[in-house]
Amino acid sequence: MSGNGNAAATAEENSPKMRVIRVGTRKSQLARIQTDSVVATLKASYPGLQFEIIAMSTTGDKILDTALSKIGEKSLFTKELEHALEKNEVDLVVHSLKDLPTVLPPGFTIGAICKRENPHDAVVFHPKFVGKTLETLPEKSVVGTSSLRRAAQLQRKFPHLEFRSIRGNLNTRLRKLDEQQEFSAIILATAGLQRMGWHNRVGQILHPEECMYAVGQGALGVEVRAKDQDILDLVGVLHDPETLLRCIAERAFLRHLEGGCSVPVAVHTAMKDGQLYLTGGVWSLDGSDSIQETMQATIHVPAQHEDGPEDDPQLVGITARNIPRGPQLAAQNLGISLANLLLSKGAKNILDVARQLNDAH
């Protein structure tokens, strides 16, 4: 009898209710805020589980004197976190989706994509230029951005401005803007500013005609071990179906173009009346040469937790077992079709030249 009692006690200790789920994140304040929001949602869904947040620095956090596009290494903000995932030191990792490459290392998958916040870019102005827009900034004003995508589009749109690289986390960039006289304004992701509670610093939100956004911008991705079915089931509740389908289309477009950090590629997606609209573009580094096109596809946005595919093969690095396969494939095909259209119009040449120029500098 006593033996059975011990077995029952052991089973209770090993039951999922007692389990601590370890969540990996970057150390920056924004990353911690984003991770806290994901953990809060998981806690609400699984009140019996405990969650421990483990923060670590990544290569991208450490190399702050070089433009991201020049470092010449993929997975700048993800490699150390993936290493911890691989060694079973954490069970899942919360990322900004735009930091996750469209091809993940073997053994990993994006197990959830959370509801997207505003994906557009924002302009934050130096205190002396508050009330201005990019259009009304004085001639030769210097605007800071760490992104080739932003610089290429904005140089084309605002030729009277000069664009220079600015690195560091959000706090560091804002301090550089406010305390030094080098920059009249800087460009940042609206979602990051909003998550930090800095709505009052948003001086201008850039519309798609001015600057399309990065693939996955404004959404959070939760990376897990691809074979860890328990954790895949656990994080599945975080999937937002519309965000998922938009981001599958965007990531398929980028992957098929073979774009990345070192080339200016941008997108804009919208879901309306059962249609998914995808606009994508590529630019030369100075913005003088560009190709942009829009395509659409009829896609039914499923309700969360309709029964999805059981075999769960990944699409552009994403596993969404609780979302039907048909809409996911339709979104992926839309991204591939748009990429093929741009490639047929000469996108590869623009991107190759951009890559060579970026590598040469």
Rank of each mutant, 00 (worst) to 15 (best):
V103H: 00
A151D: 12
P241W: 14
H160R: 12
R149L: 03
L343N: 15
D311F: 03
G48E: 12
G259Q: 00
T298N: 08
W198D: 08
I110N: 04
I350P: 00
Q34D: 03
R225D: 06
L315R: 04
E86R: 12
E73L: 07
P313F: 02
L104C: 09
N322A: 00
A330V: 14
T66Q: 06
S288Y: 06
A189E: 03
G346T: 08
Q292L: 12
K132Y: 12
S290W: 15
E80A: 11
L343W: 15
T25D: 02
A84L: 07
L278M: 06
R150T: 04
E139Y: 12
L170S: 07
L174A: 06
S184N: 12
G168I: 01
V20M: 11
V94T: 06
M196P: 00
Q328P: 10
L232E: 04
M271Y: 15
R255L: 00
E209V: 03
I336T: 02
H120F: 15
I205Y: 15
N340R: 08
E310P: 03
R325F: 14
K70P: 08
I33A: 14
V222F: 02
D99C: 00
I186G: 05
D240I: 06
D230M: 15
L245S: 01
G168F: 03
A152W: 10
N171E: 13
V103C: 15
E86P: 01
V267R: 00
T35W: 04
E86H: 13
G287F: 05
A339M: 01
I350F: 12
A320Q: 03
E223I: 04
K348P: 03
R19G: 13
H126N: 11
S146D: 04
L193V: 07
L342H: 15
L341R: 08
V90Y: 05
L254A: 02
N171W: 14
V237R: 10
T319D: 07
N171S: 12
T41R: 11
E162V: 14
S290F: 14
G168S: 02
E89C: 08
L245V: 09
K70D: 10
L64C: 13
E162Q: 07
V301K: 03
A339S: 07
E310D: 06
H300E: 12
K345D: 05
Q153G: 07
R195Y: 10
S165M: 06
F77M: 01
G259N: 00
T172I: 07
I33R: 10
L244C: 12
L351M: 14
A67W: 01
H207C: 11
L238H: 00
I248V: 07
E258Y: 13
K27M: 11
G260A: 04
L234A: 14
L154H: 09
N340Q: 15
G168W: 03
Q314E: 14
G218Q: 02
L81A: 05
A330N: 13
Q34H: 05
A270W: 06
R150V: 05
L97W: 02
L351A: 03
L220F: 04
S288C: 11
P264A: 06
Q194R: 13
S337E: 05
E179P: 06
D311V: 12
W283N: 12
N88Y: 12
R22V: 14
T136E: 11
G144F: 01
G218C: 01
H207R: 07
I21K: 01
T145P: 01
L64E: 00
A270E: 14
Q194T: 04
D36G: 13
K176E: 09
G317A: 04
Y46C: 09
F51H: 09
D61T: 02
A40S: 10
Q292D: 10
L232H: 07
V265M: 03
R255K: 03
C261D: 05
D286C: 07
K70A: 12
H199W: 10
G287R: 07
G317D: 04
L92M: 12
Q194I: 01
G281E: 15
E258N: 02
G308R: 07
T102F: 03
S69A: 09
P241R: 03
G326C: 13
K115Y: 06
S147H: 00
L188D: 02
N340H: 02
F163V: 13
R251Y: 02
L161R: 04
D233C: 11
D312F: 07
K62N: 15
D65S: 10
V237H: 00
F77R: 01
R32A: 08
I205L: 14
Q314A: 04
L97I: 08
Q153P: 11
L64H: 15
E117T: 06
E82H: 03
D99G: 03
D228V: 04
G72E: 12
K98C: 05
E52C: 13
Q204I: 01
R116I: 02
A347G: 03
A31S: 10
S96D: 03
A266L: 02
V38N: 04
D65R: 13
M56R: 08
G131H: 13
L334H: 00
D99K: 03
P106Q: 11
N200Q: 00
L137Y: 04
P208D: 04
G168P: 03
H83S: 12
A303H: 04
Y46R: 08
G107S: 10
A320P: 06
Q155T: 11
S288Q: 14
A360C: 00
Y213G: 09
T109S: 09
G260V: 15
F129W: 01
Q181V: 10
R167D: 05
D289T: 15
S337R: 14
D99P: 05
Q229A: 06
P119I: 02
F253K: 00
Q29F: 06
Q296Y: 10
S146P: 03
Y277S: 10
L232G: 13
I33G: 07
T243H: 11
L244W: 02
V215K: 02
T190R: 07
I205M: 10
T35G: 10
K98D: 00
D91L: 03
D65Q: 08
K176D: 09
A249Q: 01
E52M: 01
L177P: 00
S57C: 10
D359W: 13
T172A: 13
Q181Y: 14
K70N: 15
F77N: 02
Q155C: 13
C261V: 02
W198H: 11
C211A: 10
V39D: 03
L49R: 06
G144S: 06
S69K: 14
T41Q: 09
V142N: 11
A252G: 06
R251N: 06
E293L: 06
A122P: 05
G144D: 04
Q204A: 05
